[in-house]
Amino acid sequence: MSSIDLTGRRALVTGGARGLGAGMAQALTAAGARVMIADVLKDVGEQTAAGLEGGGFVELDVTSDSQWEAAAAHTVAELGGLDILVNNAGIEVTQLLADTDPDEIKKMLEVNILGTMLGIKHGFRTMRPGGAAGGGGSIINIASVAATIAFPAIAGYSATKSGVDRLTRVAAMEAGKLGYGVRVNCLYPGLVATDMGVKLAVETAGLGLFESPDAAVGAVIELTPSGRLGEVSDMADAVVFLASDASRFVNGAGLPVDGGMGM
């Protein structure tokens, strides 16, 4: 558990209804922040938010500019400001390059890249001087170890998460040049046994790339010097660090939290 104190900070976590996002929201809350969960999964999101002291829930399709504007305004109105934005919402489609489905790739591009860009847009507009919050802050984009390794059947996902890395660095430079007072960093999570992680193991095995889902997981562990899969808490603690003053001179960076898999 993190010893970092985020008391008084206000955070918005996209894709926070379950999985990594829920863990990140819980860790930020445990560190003292008030957290607004944003997700398309209304029932699950409201249930998760109910367990966060001082937090809340807002329905958000990250590909919608108008919904982003409303979510940012709702967060400021309910929490009294916005200091931390975690662009975690994302989707993964498993397919071989020879079987590329353009519609599925477009969905990933819209959620993983456009959704992150719109998050940065409205985070900047809210946090910068003259914005509704106006006190600066920290934006944390969730990329993936897939941006740094060559793993079969996730070419489209890898491409979108590589794009998140580039967006992060340009955003940090723009924020600095324009005096926004907002740091922008990204995280490269390793494979975690969330619904998305299990789905990847099952689907790569289904494509004949591994003998079984367990063999797929074993292949990931074999590539990981730490010798295990990641845990939600590993990623959540890293988000708390990047949200805090402990990382005050970390900007435009990509932090691998993958047990060494992507080195």
Score class of each variant (00 low, 15 high):
141 N>D: 15
175 A>P: 08
154 I>W: 09
173 M>V: 14
161 K>R: 09
173 M>N: 05
156 G>F: 01
179 G>M: 08
155 A>F: 01
172 A>L: 08
181 G>Q: 09
169 R>K: 12
177 K>Q: 14
168 T>W: 12
174 E>M: 12
162 S>M: 07
152 P>T: 12
171 A>V: 11
139 I>N: 10
149 I>A: 06
165 D>H: 10
161 K>Q: 04
155 A>Q: 01
167 L>W: 04
157 Y>Q: 06
172 A>K: 02
154 I>M: 13
142 I>G: 13
180 Y>S: 06
186 C>D: 13
140 I>A: 15
137 G>N: 08
145 V>W: 13
188 Y>K: 14
168 T>L: 06
167 L>K: 02
137 G>I: 08
138 S>M: 05
149 I>W: 06
169 R>S: 15
155 A>I: 01
154 I>C: 09
139 I>C: 08
153 A>H: 07
185 N>L: 06
152 P>Y: 15
142 I>S: 04
164 V>A: 01
135 G>I: 08
158 S>Y: 01
158 S>F: 04
157 Y>R: 00
178 L>A: 15
170 V>F: 06
151 F>A: 13
158 S>N: 00
167 L>I: 11
157 Y>I: 03
174 E>L: 04
175 A>S: 13
166 R>W: 10
174 E>V: 05
168 T>P: 05
170 V>Q: 04
142 I>P: 00
159 A>H: 00
183 R>S: 13
161 K>W: 06
173 M>D: 13
181 G>Y: 03
158 S>E: 08
179 G>L: 08
142 I>Q: 14
174 E>N: 06
143 A>M: 12
134 G>S: 15
135 G>R: 14
147 A>D: 01
163 G>H: 10
146 A>S: 04
139 I>M: 08
160 T>P: 03
173 M>T: 12
161 K>I: 02
162 S>L: 01
187 L>S: 03
183 R>F: 15
134 G>R: 07
169 R>F: 09
174 E>W: 00
188 Y>T: 04
174 E>G: 02
177 K>E: 15
178 L>Y: 08
176 G>M: 05
177 K>C: 01
186 C>M: 05
166 R>C: 11
162 S>A: 14
170 V>R: 02
156 G>K: 03
164 V>M: 00
141 N>K: 11
156 G>N: 12
153 A>D: 03
133 A>H: 15
187 L>G: 04
183 R>W: 07
156 G>W: 10
164 V>Q: 02
173 M>F: 10
186 C>Q: 14
168 T>H: 07
166 R>T: 14
152 P>K: 15
178 L>F: 11
158 S>P: 10
141 N>G: 11
185 N>G: 10
151 F>I: 02
138 S>C: 07
161 K>L: 05
162 S>E: 02
143 A>K: 02
186 C>Y: 12
142 I>H: 11
140 I>Y: 10
171 A>P: 05
141 N>H: 14
167 L>S: 04
169 R>Y: 09
182 V>F: 03
174 E>H: 02
179 G>Q: 09
154 I>A: 09
150 A>I: 01
143 A>P: 05
180 Y>W: 14
146 A>V: 02
152 P>M: 12
